[in-house]
């Protein structure tokens, strides 16, 4: 199995490494700096695996991007995860026109150096 590009953010099963505060706030990615809702920190913030399922809020095709390491065009989506956090990240390309409200699922795709990185695609 290929290594993950960002193993601190997601798992080989394409689930997301989020966190949950003692106050109930669910966030992504996991961190222990402090809770954005209540300010609790350290051990009050515990890892919580997020399913990688969510609903598309919006998507767009980027035609122009300054970073040559990420050649355009590529697609970006804003997804409300079923556990609450909203993530903005790359969609599996080429992405068809996806309507807001579409059920989305995280998946892993091969990228440079034989690694795999997370993308979202409409759930089949």
């Amino acid at each position: 199995m290929d290594a993950l590009l960002k193993p601190s953010l997601y798992t080989p099963a394409a689930t997301l490494l989020g966190g949950r505060c003692a106050c109930g706030h669910v966030f992504y990615p996991m961190q222990t700096h402090g809770c954005e809702v209540c300010g609790r920190h350290g051990g009050d913030l515990q890892p919580m695996t997020l399913s990688g399922r969510g609903t598309l809020l919006s998507s767009t095709v980027v035609h122009l991007h300054a970073d040559k390491a990420r050649p355009a065009p590529f697609s970006i989506g804003k997804i409300a995860l079923e556990e609450g956090p909203v993530v903005r990240t790359l969609l599996v390309d080429p992405a068809p026109s996806i309507a807001p409200g579409t059920a989305m699922k995280a998946t892993l795709v091969p990228v440079e150096d034989g690694k795999r990185d997370l993308r979202f695609a409409p759930e089949r």
């Binding site: 990615p29 700096h33 804003k78 903005r88 807001p100 997370l118």
Partner: peptide, 28 residues
Amino acid sequence: STGIDALAEDAIAQFTHFSLLTNEYAHR
């Protein structure tokens, strides 16, 4: 860096943020 990694924030320029917002607004 805040010390917290992100999935692909480097891929989201300001105009991409506002393109997402444009699509959301137009749809809604």
